[in-house]
């Protein structure tokens, strides 16, 4: 028996068998994995129809591109993650469904993201800050982190006194505001009431200034200003609200107010890592399969038995014989 224990071949083989038996004895271990719970809210207002992205070489609207990014996100999130979906228009996020497990319900999630469409919008307005604040509240109630995808274009524009005040607690909800859209202003497609595209919004078809509340301080210098009859000036001002680009400074400011992160949507992949960097980790125990590792260890045993030990022996034998020949030569 002792002789066997000294035999490197026997030891290698015994090790291989021990590893194979261990694979049955300890097939899996529990490891902590960090997933995320995400409430993805997609802005489906008119400006999100602007086609300033491209997918597979064809121009794609911001909604289409964001959908592609969301589908990749669902596929890329690590396994104990959950994703819920909401759409946003006017000032209200509308919860489609509460967060569900991405791995068990991948097909359902993928299909649900695929059907998102601007035609689901029930109102034409796009009050981003109000919608964002309500989405933060909705995420807080569902206990998830928020992913808010928007181009940041308020329609109608914010009044002179600025955006509504955020009354939540800054940083209570973690998450990401994802700015969709290019930096160059692009025309916004226009649709008729049956959903058919009829061209682009013209400069005279959208309000360029909000006339709610108090007039801005510079109103007195405007032409046709009258304190009672025309407090905002005599003429509607023409601006660039009929064109759309991602309003990054505004979104960064909103992110600062709410304590969310900000990122620009540039490519359809990579969203998962950006989100996981800011999301609260949701640790959960996941089984980890140890059997391949044990099988690999057994292979090391076999490699030792059939390659390393025989080759080592051949080398030592060669050296011995070479030594023997040189010694015999010296004797001669």
């Amino acid at each position: 028996m002792i002789a066997r224990l000294r035999d490197a071949r026997f030891l290698s083989l015994a090790f291989a068998l021990a590893m194979l038996v261990a694979a049955f004895a300890f097939p899996r271990a529990e490891v902590v994995r960090n997933g995320a719970d995400v409430l993805a809210t997609l802005d489906i207002t008119g400006s999100m129809n602007t086609r300033d992205y491209s997918l597979d070489g064809a121009p794609a609207s911001r909604i289409e591109f964001a959908k592609q990014a969301l589908r990749r996100l669902v596929a890329d999130l690590p396994c104990p993650s959950r994703v819920g979906l909401a759409i946003f228009t006017e000032r209200e996020p509308f919860l489609l469904f509460e967060p569900i497990d991405v791995c068990e319900n991948f097909a359902a999630l993928d299909a649900a993201i695929g059907t998102l469409d601007w035609r689901m919008a029930w109102e034409g307005d796009s009050r981003i800050s109000a919608g964002l604040f309500r989405a933060v509240e909705m995420a807080r109630r569902t206990g998830a982190d928020l992913l808010f995808i928007t181009d940041g274009q308020e329609a109608p524009p914010l009044p002179a006194y600025g955006a509504p005040v955020f009354d939540g607690q800054r940083g209570e909800i973690s998450g990401l505001i994802l700015g969709a859209g290019g930096y160059e202003p692009a025309p916004i497609p226009k649709f008729d009431d049956r959903g058919r595209e009829t061209g682009f919004f013209g400069v005279d078809e959208v309000p360029h200034e909000s006339r709610f509340g108090l007039p801005p301080p510079d109103a007195e210098q405007r032409e046709g200003y009258n304190p009672r009859n025309a407090p905002f000036g005599g003429e509607m001002r023409a601006g660039t609200e009929h064109l759309s680009s991602v309003r990054e400074p505004y979104l960064r400011q909103l992110a600062e107010t709410t304590g969310l992160g900000y990122a620009h949507l540039e490519k359809p992949d990579g969203l998962a890592s950006a989100l996981l960097a800011v999301a609260r980790p949701r640790p959960s125990l996941a089984p980890f399969d140890l059997r391949p590792a044990f099988a690999a260890a057994a292979l090391v045993g076999f490699a030792s038995l059939y390659l390393i030990v025989p080759l080592a022996e051949i080398f030592t034998r060669r050296r011995h014989s070479r030594l023997a020949t040189t010694r015999s030569r010296r004797i001669e």
């Binding site: 759409i87 469904f97 569900i100 319900n105 359902a108 299909a111 059907t115 689901m120």
Partner: peptide, 17 residues
């Protein structure tokens, strides 16, 4: 407007959500 919430599926958890 009509809103597609969950396309036809057999994933019970998704329908429940």
């Amino acid at each position: 407007s009509p809103i597609m919430v969950m396309p036809m599926t057999n994933h019970r958890a998704a329908v429940r959500a």
